[in-house]
Design a binder for these strands. Structure first.
Lengths: 134, 134
DNA sequence: CGGTATCCAGGAAGATACTG
DNA sequence: CAGTATCTTCCTGGATACCG
């Protein structure tokens, strides 16, 4: 994904929800593109406990590849959700930490997470019912 | 995306946020995978104004291809966010409508949308600052 | 009208190897 | 340790054509 995958390209003629200007669409998709991708949310959650180095994140999200972790933290850094601090020792050490905004986004995201958990069974039931018919 | 793209596959050793069991990760990623994809949110928003037919949705999201609109509404139907009603006239007529759950998810999603709008400028500034350096 | 089927190009992501 | 570079594979999504 990273940047351009989840990018709403047209909101022009929506207009069913009162006052849904195009820039709202773009903002939402921007945030969702970052927060909603495969790994970002997990990394943010991990960092909510405090600063972590690259290898700690790597261990925490066991199945992520080094490449994808790099890509993910770079994206989060670019959008201002985390800071990246390099300590030029040998071997090198890099620490990642949530910014204020990074901590801030946890609030609405947690709300969505709560909703997701609450409606988990409903979604699963709907999915199974749908698949049963074909 | 549809179904498998945004799918968290490992949450095992996260544990920094107090009590973040694996099923929370899966639920969240399930919801985000559906709601956070390129078109679903727009379709949901369009349907928040009431039942709409296929062609109306197609016009509303001008730049979406017929294939992607079909894929999107199918996914939303599968997960129980919308209902699909076929009227066997000639030519055929198909109406889509939000379920209770579909209307319900608008709440947390709107919260995130609001956050996104509020922090829009911050994200953009961070992005530009990051890109300026390289 | 509302799809489905098919083909194709481009990006995403895994595996692997190498570097400051 | 924390990356970058490259190669390859998979899959998404666009274009097009056809069907009930």
């Amino acid at each position: 994904m990273c940047a351009s995958h989840v990018k709403v390209t047209a909101c022009a003629t929506v207009g069913t929800l009162a006052d849904l200007p195009p820039d709202v669409c773009e903002s939402v998709s921007d945030v969702l593109a970052r927060v909603g991708d495969k790994w970002s949310l997990l990394v943010i959650y991990m960092l909510s406990g405090g600063s972590k180095r690259f290898s700690e994140l790597k261990r925490g999200v066991a199945s992520i590849s080094q490449k994808m972790l790099t890509t993910t933290v770079r994206g989060l850094e670019r959008d201002g959700y985390v800071t990246r601090t390099v300590t030029a020792t040998v071997p090198a050490r890099v620490d990642y930490e949530l910014t204020d905004m990074g901590r801030d986004v946890l609030l609405p995201v947690t709300a969505l997470a709560t909703w997701a958990l609450t409606h988990r069974s409903t979604v699963e039931a709907a999915r199974m019912a749908y698949d049963r018919l074909g």
